[in-house]
Simulated scan of single mutants.
Amino acid sequence: MSFYPSRDQQARYAIAMIANLGQRYAGSSAVQNTLGDIKGALRSMQDKIGTWSVVWGPALYFSDPSGNPDNIMYVAQQEGTNNYVIGIAGTNFANAFDFVYEDLGVTGTTPWMLLGAPAGAAISDGTYLGLANLLNTPASAGTPQAGVKIMDFLAAESKKGALNLAVAGHSLGGALAPTLALYIKNVSLLWDASRKSTVLTMPVAGPTPGNKVFADYLNTTVTVDGFYNDRDVVPHVWSASDLSELATIYGETDLIGGFIAGIAAGIATLATKDFNYTPTERTELKGSVLLGKLYFDQAGFQHLYAYDLFFFDNQIQPALHPPSTESQSVQIPSTLADAVKNAGGTIPSYIEVVPPRPQKEVTVGKKTFKVPASADAEQIRQAVMATAPHFGDALGL
């Protein structure tokens, strides 16, 4: 089934992805660099998403003031309308805080005890931590509404009239966005002076934020317009049924990568079995496995660039994926470039197309797999035995 996003959906996706632009900066210059990048990206995409301006933030939360920001959030308003989008950044792999404490903080849950919530509703401890950071971090110094927290900003804006508010995020932001949207909806009596504001959330590629009671409650309380690529590993966590698909999500072209993912998924299933994590409402987008790519290379593409192709007519958007530093180019393998071109898309000039990493075929049992050219038979045997000994025994390794 083809996907034909509306202009509003394109705008929400872009605004969410633009929140990630500040993740590469550290220290005292991070705020102004982030604000400048956000403004520049919104301008560069006007022909695709309309005219939007930053009206609050960004708010940058730092667990280490000298390091990179752990959470980033800002608000954009569409020119001449009462349409507002809160954009929430995903995981910042420039530091360990997001990954260890927010992404992997799923071995315990925190009850959702706001007005109207059913008994038993709960979110992961990691999601709770991220939500607390977003609610308690004011717009950073030198940005629009500096020193003002998000709920106070919404209260002031609603006095001008009803807001059409969307909360959007990708990856970690895709778990935090619906959670923040539900919080905003639950406490609407405290901020919505008009009593007519609407709240929608568009989580993209997000992991599961909470249990089934929470998901059901959120789906019936807030308008949820979520999306996920069925070939993306991230939205397959932390629901047990989704985790079970990870070992074979890209077929059997990468023996080692698939088994590593399968073992990791098994460990995650055991660690979260008592919490009944359930995804919030979302639309499945049918991704395509790229031939010639190993598991973890494939996973990176499916989690990032693939969504550009879904939302923007098979075209990667340069404004959403700049180099991590000004002097560093973004590299993609020629197999990916060929796939984009075959789909009718274009490769931005700043992206360097490089030959794929050398691979070779190796036969294990009755099956033939592609593995890195540098891997010898003993390394393959050891990897299989270390990650899946029973499979290794069955094949006589």
Rank of each mutant, 00 (worst) to 15 (best):
N92K: 09
N92Y: 10
F93S: 11
F93C: 08
F93R: 08
A94T: 11
N95L: 04
N95V: 03
A96T: 14
A96F: 10
F97H: 05
F97C: 01
F97W: 07
F97Y: 12
F99E: 14
V100S: 07
V100G: 01
V100T: 10
Y101Q: 12
E102A: 01
E102M: 03
D103L: 00
D103T: 00
G105S: 04
V106F: 00
T107F: 04
T107S: 06
T109S: 14
T109V: 15
T110D: 11
T110F: 11
T110L: 13
P111E: 11
W112V: 12
M113P: 05
L114D: 13
L114T: 15
L115N: 13
L115A: 13
G116I: 10
G116V: 10
G116T: 09
P118H: 01
P118E: 06
A119N: 14
A122S: 15
A122E: 12
D125F: 06
D125E: 10
Y128A: 14
Y128N: 14
L129A: 11
L129N: 09
L129I: 15
G130A: 11
L131K: 05
L131D: 06
A132I: 15
L134N: 10
N136W: 09
P138S: 09
A139F: 05
A141Q: 12
G142A: 02
T143L: 02
T143Q: 00
T143V: 03
P144F: 00
P144V: 06
P144S: 03
Q145M: 10
A146G: 07
A146L: 05
V148M: 08
I150V: 07
M151T: 12
D152N: 09
D152L: 05
A155M: 06
A156P: 00
A156F: 02
E157M: 09
E157S: 07
S158M: 05
S158V: 07
K159I: 08
K160Y: 03
K160M: 07
K160W: 02
L163S: 03
L163W: 01
L163P: 02
L165C: 13
V167H: 03
H170K: 07
S171G: 07
S171M: 08
L172P: 04
L172Q: 15
G174C: 09
L176I: 12
A177V: 13
A177I: 12
P178W: 06
P178S: 09
P178T: 08
T179I: 07
A181M: 05
L182K: 00
Y183F: 11
I184Y: 01
I184C: 04
K185M: 10
N186S: 15
V187Q: 05
S188N: 10
L189D: 14
L189W: 07
L190K: 11
L190E: 12
A193W: 02
A193V: 11
S194K: 05
K196D: 14
S197M: 06
T198V: 13
T198N: 04
V199L: 04
V199E: 02
V199C: 07
V199Q: 01
M202N: 06
M202L: 13
V204Q: 02
G206E: 08
P207T: 08
P207A: 02
T208V: 15
T208G: 14
P209F: 11
P209C: 14
P209Y: 09
G210V: 15
N211I: 15
K212P: 15
V213C: 15
V213R: 10
